[in-house]
Every structure is written in structure tokens, then in C-alpha cells.
Design a protein around this nucleic acid. Structure first.
Length: 431
RNA sequence: GCCGGGGUGGGGUAGUUGGUUAUCCUACGGGACUGUGGAUCCCGCGACUCGGGUUCGAAUCUCGGCCCCGGCCCCA
């Protein structure tokens, strides 16, 4: 019988887990320095939680099932909906703003390819209540800060405000449903298709022209000026643009000016209400988006009181890939510092004793468990890159000592068992 | 869902105009070698992704499945 891993899933081995854990730890540290606390939600939820948010259509891409009680459940395909649910269930009356972060795996039934798996990890945060350019800026600053802490530099952060385009559409009396169709096309970035659709929908030429120009505005601060010329007849858009500008000012105060203003970001779904941002890592190829976020009104959709929240999530697996490409994979910690080897079988119990002394002092210690010959142990210790091998032999033991062999130099010395821990700790620290 | 490239011991590979026992490296187990050679040498273990077809004969040709890689669609 040959059982294979399900399609689109991965096994992570020792080295890779160390790498992932290090990235996870770094992000946790950054999130916590900004005052976010960790939460965790279940791996599966009521299917309706996701269809409510994204429409029935997404069931196609969800791992869903009925449990023995006939409940329609789904492995979560993302984490913002569960987090909103958690908020409504547990935290609605808590003081705002509420800052929380999460890390966990999600599942989507999709065709696997580079940067896309059927089980993947997201790490992100949510700031609920207290919507303001200040909190939005802080979130973007935190996302950027996180990437810097990981040593990444080759990324672009694009910021936009949906209110600008929505304002133009409102001004032209385009109804909500039609707006959503247009936003979806803008999100794809297909200019030709957008042009075609605007014609088909009989949007007036002036509005179409404004939209096409706005969507093409991508650049630094100066495009705000260009945009403000174009939209000056729509008060709603003017307000949104001012809001965006204020956000950029604040962001600079937080120390980040390396952003791109991109009015073409639309983020398909209609509950996004204000600023949106996406981060790309060019080196990743087709699946280059490593993060997406913005301000939205999701909680109300789920029946909570109206509260806006701002959040973003990193595609954790893609971050791992970036860090790896960046070659900044720090030297990984060794698995073992010391290997304890009994010189003869009779001394194995003594070897265990010695190993335990070291382990209780937090020294990473391996000891022979299968009666290997000394030569074999030295060979293994060498392959594991252990720093020292402790040879436990009868002659030394008579004096209460063991032999400590430096695997780098090959030199060895007799050490009192009592002072062994101390000695090794100092040597490891020095190295 | 679509297009293209792949799949040989645990890891990395050679071999593919069909033809003995499928190559080498590494890892692993044992030995030469009993408190010390981590070197060297010897021995061992272990693979053609799965199924059908063509053929006297298939890792090799062919069809299909599975899985992987790159891209398209999608991407909450």
C-alpha cells in the first residue's frame, strides 16, 4: 500500500520547520510590539460564514462537508471571516480599538501551482473599531515593518482608496450592482475589458474617461495632484482622496515613504469601504502578492453592530519563499551540541546519566541508544555537526572524569564530571 | 477547468534510435579495527509513479490515471 500526501499539501521537514518557525516568531514579535494579541479560531466553521461573505459561488473552491449531525461545515478558506465571527460572538462589547492577530492554515480547493497550495498558512491582523487614517497608517507601517524585520527589501506596497472610484460612479448615478461589476474588472487590471464594459453599460463618455485615467494612475505622491484635478466635481471622491493623502502623511511620520499610490486597486468584494493596499514581491512570479488588506465593513454583514475594521494578512508560505530567495536564511541552529558516547556497552547507563546532566542544563545533547560502536558514534556526531563528543570510559570514571573531544580540532581533554556542564557552556558561548 | 514540461533506491543522478545482472555519489546497516583513524578499504540494504496497449522482449514506444513543476482562469 502506497499512500500519498493529498494533492497540494506538503510535509515540512526539520530544516524547513526551523525556517518557518523563525519567520513566525519574527512576525509575532513585530505584531506584539504594536500591541496586538493573538487569537485562534477553529479550523472548520459553518459553511454559511463563508458563503455569506463571498457568495455561493465560492463553495466550488471550499473543502466543505456534512458532519454526522448533518451540519454543513467548511474547512476555513481564509481567516478574516472567522475573526469577524469571533468578534461578534465574544468581543462585541469590548473597548475599541481592538487589536488582534492570528496565524493558522487555511484550505482551498484549487489547482496547485507556485505559491499556491491547497493547505496554506496565513498570518495577519485585524484592528476593529476606531477607523481613522491614523490606524490605517499604523497597520500599513506594521506590515512594512514586518517585512523589513525579515530582511526583505524587494517588495512594493501599493495603496489606494476605493472611495475615489466609487465616488465617481455615485456621481454618475451608476447603481450599486453595476458598480460592483466595474470594480471587479478594475481589480483585474484589464484596461481593454474595462473600456468595453463601460461602453456596453452605456456609462457616459465623460465618466468613462475619468475612470480610465484614474485607474492608470500609479506612482508616488505626485499623482494625488493629478487625480484631484480629474475628480474635482465629485465631492465624495475629493473627500476620499483627501483621506488618502492624510494617510500618506501619517505613514511618513511612521517612517515609511517607500510606497506606491495605486488608484487601480479595487479588491473585488463590495464590503471594502475605504483604503486598500496590496504588497507584491516581484521575485515570486505569477503568485507575487504576499499581502492584501484594507478597511471593510464585514461585521455588519454577519449581523454585528456596524463597526469598521482594518486588517491585512500575509500569505505566510509566500513570505517563506521570499526569505529563502533572499538568501538571508540565517545560519540555522544546530540540532545537537554534544554527543555522549559510552566507550563500551557496560557504560551505557553512565552515559545516560551524563547526558541527562547536560540536558537539564539546556545543552542540546544526543546519546547513543542502540549500542553503536565508538567509531560509528564519532562518525554520526560528525555528520550531525556536533561540537563535542563526551567519551565515557572506565579509566576516566575512576577519577570521576570523562573525556571531552572537540570535533572541530580533534583535541581532547579530561574533564571532571562536576565541571563538565560549566565547561561546555563556556565553550559553546565562546564559539 | 485549460496549455506546456516532468516522475529511476531515503536524497542526488547515469541510462531512453526497445535487447544480459539498471550506473555513480551520498545516506543508512555490517565488517577489517576490543578506550578512540571522524580517514581508508570491503560487504550489505535499497529504485524504473501506477494501470492498460504494442512487442519475442518496455525504464525506453503508445494511451489513460495519479503526483510534481511553470503558465492561463480564478484568487475571499
Amino acid at each position: 500500500m502506497d499512500i500519498q500526501r493529498p494533492r497540494g499539501t506538503r510535509d515540512f521537514l526539520f530544516e524547513e520547520m526551523k525556517e518557518r518557525k523563525e519567520i513566525e516568531t519574527t512576525l509575532r514579535r513585530v505584531f506584539e510590539t504594536y500591541g496586538y494579541g493573538e487569537i485562534k479560531t477553529p479550523l472548520f466553521e459553518d459553511l454559511a460564514l463563508f458563503t455569506m461573505k463571498s457568495g455561493e459561488g465560492i463553495v466550488e473552491q471550499i473543502y466543505n462537508f456534512q458532519d454526522k449531525g448533518g451540519r454543513d461545515l467548511a474547512l476555513r478558506p481564509e481567516l478574516t471571516a472567522p475573526v469577524a465571527r469571533l468578534y461578534i460572538n465574544e468581543l462585541q462589547k469590548s473597548p475599541k480599538p481592538l487589536k488582534m492577530y492570528y496565524f493558522g492554515s487555511c484550505f482551498r480547493y484549487e489547482r496547485p501551482q507556485k505559491g499556491r497550495w491547497r493547505q496554506f498558512w496565513q498570518m495577519g491582523c485585524e484592528l476593529i473599531g476606531g477607523k481613522s487614517p491614523e490606524s490605517e497608517a499604523e497597520i500599513i507601517a506594521m506590515a512594512t515593518h514586518s517585512l523589513e524585520e525579515l530582511g526583505l527589501t524587494d517588495f512594493e506596497i501599493h495603496i489606494g482608496n476605493l472611495g475615489i472610484i466609487r465616488g465617481i460612479l455615485d456621481q454618475a448615478d451608476v447603481e450599486k450592482g453595476v458598480q460592483d461589476i466595474i470594480m471587479a474588472i478594475i481589480d483585474k487590471g484589464e484596461i481593454d475589458e474595462l473600456l468595453k464594459t463601460l461602453n456596453e453599460l452605456k456609462i457616459d463618455p465623460k465618466t468613462s474617461e475619468i475612470l480610465l485615467t484614474l485607474v492608470g494612475l500609479v506612482g508616488h505622491r505626485e499623482i494625488i495632484k493629478e487625480a484631484s484635478e480629474i475628480i474635482k466635481d465629485s465631492p465624495e471622491s475629493v473627500e476620499a482622496l483627501e483621506e488618502l493623502e492624510e494617510l500618506l502623511d501619517i505613514l511618513e511620520a511612521f517612517g515609511f515613504s517607500n510606497y506606491t499610490v495605486n488608484l487601480g486597486i479595487a479588491r473585488g468584494l463590495d464590503y471594502y469601504s475605504g483604503i486598500v493596499f496590496e504588497i507584491y514581491a516581484r521575485s515570486l512570479g505569477a503568485q507575487k502578492q504576499i499581502s492584501g488588506g484594507g478597511t471593510y465593513n464585514l461585521i455588519e454583514i454577519f449581523g454585528g453592530e456596524k463597526v469598521e475594521s482594518t486588517g491585512f494578512a500575509f500569505g505566510f508560505d509566500r513570505l517563506v519563499e521570499c526569505v529563502r530567495q533572499c538568501g538571508r536564511a540565517k545560519s540555522l541552529p544546530k540540532t545537537v551540541d554534544v554527543y555522549v558516547a559510552p566507550i563500551s556497552k557496560e557504560l551505557k547507563l553512565k552515559a545516560f546519566e551524563v547526558a541527562q546532566i547536560l540536558r537539564k542544563n539546556s545543552i542540546k545533547t544526543e546519546v547513543d541508544l542502540v549500542g553503536r560502536k565508538l567509531k560509528k558514534i564519532l562518525s554520526l556526531a560528525n555528520n550531525l555537526q556536533a561540537d563535542y563528543v563526551i567519551l565515557v570510559g572506565e579509566r576516566d570514571l575512576e577519577e570521576g572524569k570523562v573525556t571531552m573531544k572537540d570535533m572541530e580540532s580533534g583535541k581532547q581533554e579530561l574533564v571532571e564530571i562536576e565541571s563538565l556542564t560549566q565547561e561546555i557552556k563556556e565553550l559553546l558561548k565562546a564559539a
